[in-house]
Design a protein around this nucleic acid. Sequence first.
DNA 1: CGTTCAGTGTGACCATTGTTACACAGAAAC
DNA 2: GTTTCTGTGTAACAATGGTCACACTGAACG
Lengths: 212, 212
Amino acid sequence: MNMLEDLKVNYGYLFEDELMEEIQQIGQYMGVPEGTMIIDIGDTITSMPLILNGAIKVLREDDKGDDLLLYFIENGDTCAMTITCCMGDTKSGIRAIAETDTELIMVPVQKMQEWFHKYKSWQTFVLQSYHTRMNELLEAVDAIAFLKMDERLLKYLRDKAIANRDELINTTHQEIAYDLHTSRVVVSRILKKLERDNQIQLHRNRIKILNL
Amino acid sequence: MNMLEDLKVNYGYLFEDELMEEIQQIGQYMGVPEGTMIIDIGDTITSMPLILNGAIKVLREDDKGDDLLLYFIENGDTCAMTITCCMGDTKSGIRAIAETDTELIMVPVQKMQEWFHKYKSWQTFVLQSYHTRMNELLEAVDAIAFLKMDERLLKYLRDKAIANRDELINTTHQEIAYDLHTSRVVVSRILKKLERDNQIQLHRNRIKILNL
DNA sequence: CGTTCAGTGTGACCATTGTTACACAGAAAC
DNA sequence: GTTTCTGTGTAACAATGGTCACACTGAACG
């Protein structure tokens, strides 16, 4: 079975056999196509996703409803925001959208908390996830606060290429603009400059990252 | 004893008596004057601070060594970054500076982890802290990404007034500029505009916040 | 094949923020 | 007092990014 394979590959070295067993039994498998909104802002979280493969992008929203990309998460990861929400029983502060076709295992909140006491490895995993996510949030702050638009855009393209495991990015300038919370014109302008600087190659609906 | 009083007031309703007992015995009291650097970027964290009273500001640094304020933390809080660092045994990604004269109890890492298993209330507290801090980081992102400089500055002044429990802020334009990662001239310019709009009153080394 | 439409390129202009330079004011030191 | 120093106000200008307008291009579809 594919799910079992993916589960082993991504989490086998972390979790005890017994825990792996429980995850298989209780966790609910989900395959979501690219673009699916997995969690929305304001959602009450009832289960926590373990990513088997694919990638998810995490966004924050401004008061006008426009988005800003915080970071990508990949297989072997979980959404730490989910954990805080589950524990605190509050609502999601972020939006999660499948960046590629993605396979997940959803673990219900109750189990999540039960395992937290039962399995040391689960506890470590959850706390480790917090750590990673916190650092990724800090990196996001760095990008937004310290980088200029052209640097930010290049970083974005590279991060996206890594998340997709493909140096060819299929997207439009408009979509990039949404993620970076800027305008399409600005994105086109900078992309053209990056192309002149031999950082990328531009095509319709497609960008190739050089020197990745 | 003062420390005991503060401990009870801030944490008594959270922790079991037994845990309170342990904190008193093992935790090390520290009084730090305003401006003291409590944690620096790159520090290896060996203990975790519980704030008894006062306030601490948490900063991130860019590659040129310039700072950016992330948020203030107050009594009853702890630094969640510390926790991640302790657990993961990695280095601090942030700098923490006493915003006012501050009293803390430092709990060594080992105890922190021991209590995590021993006391449910401690576990809840730590996870809750993560949650709060995560949200505060998100708020910081909002401010940096979505607000214009004048709005950000006003928010900064208000947050600072709250952290200091005083509508009178003792600081210079230069210091504000450091925290907001901008220049003194920009700060002076905007402050003057805020004064014209009756949001604040300006004096040398002193700003009074109106309609707080 | 021509029409339509989404996606891209670009000039012109504006708004915000950053920079430089310098004047001035109040506090502190002499 | 006057000198010195730190802090503040402001004009002038530069740089960055956002907005508007419009041309062009390739893909899709009839």
